[in-house]
Design a protein around this nucleic acid. Sequence first.
DNA 1: CTGAAAGCGCTAACAC
DNA 2: GTGTTAGCGCTTTCAG
Lengths: 339, 339
Amino acid sequence: MSTIKDVAKLAGLSRTTVSRVLNDHPYVSVEKKKLVQQAMEQLGYVPNSAARSLRNNKTGIIAVLIPKISTPFFSQLIEILEMAASAKGYQLIICQTQFSKQKELNYLNLLKTKQVDGVIMTSIENDWSIIDAYLNYGPIVLCNEMIEHAQIPMVYMNQASSGYNVAKHLLEMGHRQIAYCSNGIVSEGMKAREKGFKRALLESGCTFDENFHFENVASIEDGKQIFRKITEMKIKPTAIFTGGDSVAAGFISEAKKHGWNIPEDFAVVGFDNMEISELFDPKITTVVQPVEEMAIKSIEVAFEKIHKRQFRSTEKHIFSMKLAIRGSTMKKRKLVATS
Amino acid sequence: MSTIKDVAKLAGLSRTTVSRVLNDHPYVSVEKKKLVQQAMEQLGYVPNSAARSLRNNKTGIIAVLIPKISTPFFSQLIEILEMAASAKGYQLIICQTQFSKQKELNYLNLLKTKQVDGVIMTSIENDWSIIDAYLNYGPIVLCNEMIEHAQIPMVYMNQASSGYNVAKHLLEMGHRQIAYCSNGIVSEGMKAREKGFKRALLESGCTFDENFHFENVASIEDGKQIFRKITEMKIKPTAIFTGGDSVAAGFISEAKKHGWNIPEDFAVVGFDNMEISELFDPKITTVVQPVEEMAIKSIEVAFEKIHKRQFRSTEKHIFSMKLAIRGSTMKKRKLVATS
DNA sequence: CTGAAAGCGCTAACAC
DNA sequence: GTGTTAGCGCTTTCAG
């Protein structure tokens, strides 16, 4: 492994000059530059990044804290984050918190040990007051979450409008009794989604029946179970916002098995626009999150904070959802018959 | 940011002693150790990882090269890799090659610059002769791939047996005309899978009809298209190994739309055991890869190589697939009727 | 334009 | 048991 010293010796110059060439400094004569480059080539020289990090006090690495990588939403997010980071010359360290407070803190320590220049949190387990302390060591960006009074950049989707728009759509389709599912995650975003949902109902003069509120719903199995619960109800809803495509898929598959017609007998809305939502029969109406915009913005903001060295600042970068309206809420008009 | 020097000063001891405490060396008296720990506590001291890396010539980071993160198989793989690495005190840098030779080389350079202690490649774009050169800088482990004559640890699934077992199963179900799909990836693994598939046919006295070989098949859309192609054939196959659950799902959904019964009219086998394969009606028979075993073994081997400093060695760690036999190939027996 | 030299924070001989 | 000291490889004043 050759060092800058070896290059200097071979080129017959000083380490300073080699370093200058390495960093594209001005004030190096073209000939010396050539000399250095030749020497580097000849030795197969590559700068040692630990030495650079130590000296420059930066690593070119950003940590991404994520609860569970294999969740489709998160893996999509990481994919774009990685591309955006890479485009700016950053590497990404992936940290799976598995919803554990302790792991979250362990990973935040990467900031203290200076192993990373910044952190992007895609979920948040600990109280803000605890995390806030880490801002003394480097920038943290919240991606896909928000915390009302935190002095930190936040990049997120307007959850309130997602709840609102879904309810609005179902109301327009003529539903008055609409069920709602929470996924067990307690966060500002989830609260906002629920609020938006209820607001739309109120605005249309519907009151939300708390019997139609299902909690801790996340999997295919949960979706099937909810269908069964609904069949047993005396007063039944006619539509459901499942909060997840897997749930929606489970629900629909169980409903079909029991001879229900979707959307005629019951309308279903998912969340996330997973591959499955387009494959199902009927296709599932779902909330499309602005994953790409959020990921790109997060990297952009992290980059900016790293360079400004100003870590505390309340910034909200809010992106909008789209509603992909499909067969699970809206009967397809037959193209043949114009009846 | 306090350093080891500050701690030493506050504790009234030398940097050496502090370092010893930090690294759990023997020969430090209990009282001094206490003193040091108190000082560290008081200053909120955390060791600087760049300095440690530089000094120790290791970073505690492993790079994972992956073509596309959001692919379910790969996101699952990363998930386990991360957990296994974390359990051994390693961080993972995620590098998305996007099937690009150049990106692959760029990321391999992390080894040269000593930004990582080792690399796990989950796909391989460049010729082995090119990659081989990087073994001079650190260990590389092949996970999910194999290269016949490479001096490198390889962790992979027995692709030959996956092709073989799928064919065998379909033959047992009475099929003689079986279609086969390649996904466009040209690798030893894919070749082996195809070979195994054909071998099973031969053993049963069937000859594989090359008209039934579809290439570059990977998406839902591809699956639909293949169905349409098959409907137009004079001599049709009666079963298909799609090489992917998405393809299988697309195929089945199109087939159902055209009134075909699966598996009575046509049997379909997927690959990867994605969520979707259990949700479909019928459920999709699919190849279950030993993701977890492969991930854990890869980290284990990488760890070992890093510590042994012996990077070249031909090792094959082969794991077996499982075939999840479900409704898309095998008619469910009604439990009620015993006819 | 170029070089000498100090030092980033840590560890490990080596001496005592 | 403990401390002194010499670097790991790089960048950056400061002088020339």
